[in-house]
Design a protein around this nucleic acid. Sequence first.
DNA 1: CCTATTTGACCACA
DNA 2: TGTGGTCAAATAGG
Length: 259
Amino acid sequence: MDLEQKTLLDELTRGKELACLLRQHLHPCSSTETPQLLLQKLLCSYEKALSMLNSSGFEVESKLWVTVLGSPASLSGSSDGVKKRKISSMEVPLDDGYCWRKYGQKDILGYKFPRGYYRCTHRHSRGCLATKQVQRSDNDPTILEVKYKGRHTCNKASHFAAPPLTAEEKLKQNANGTEDSNDRRGIFPSFSFQFESEEVENGLFVETLMSPATSDLTEIMSAPTSVTNSPIGDLDLKELDRFEFDPNFPFDENPEFFS
DNA sequence: CCTATTTGACCACA
DNA sequence: TGTGGTCAAATAGG
């Protein structure tokens, strides 16, 4: 195992440990750290790990199966053609740590739901050519298949602890046009639940994320708190990579949790 | 008014 | 020629 793999393993392990700490905090006997702080650390760990995946084996093309929130009926589009934007905005609640702008949607032969096309908002300002395609699963409409293409050349790290913009910086952003206007949305990293990964062909990896509705979080949180001493061959990634995401958490109202 | 999304049109490719 | 991917004008929302 090379250094990068070890770091990846460490990050995932740390993520699990933080999740366990968070669980403890939810119990009467609490830990010393606040849930918000623990959550922040947890998310950072996962983000680092996913970022490494993205910059190694996943750089050419990768797929994610992610669970979306909200009822399938409300997500399948509207028939009256009104208020489509609001409905569609629910279709991609997943924030993977990058800023994406939707540039197209297409009905795909053989698929019940249309495929959405997204590209990095920094495409023009920073020449970032990363794109992703989001396809709702026919079998389970609560699952989104996310296919990533290209590598991010924008500096994603800046999204996580970006200092407040100075007046000069704001002017600069305005001068750059509209593409960077939502930069700071990226401070909220990804929310994934559990995933399995497999190499399907020629270095193409597919990740499958399971629905939290089918995940037994109680069982997950009851898993051993530390696996750092486990031999790599015995590690169960399914157990390492699950954590809870509260869809009702008012992130937009609590940006300080991630600043 | 500014920005992001929608969606029909267009293009490349098999 | 059909299909998937992208463009860009129109539109909606803050």
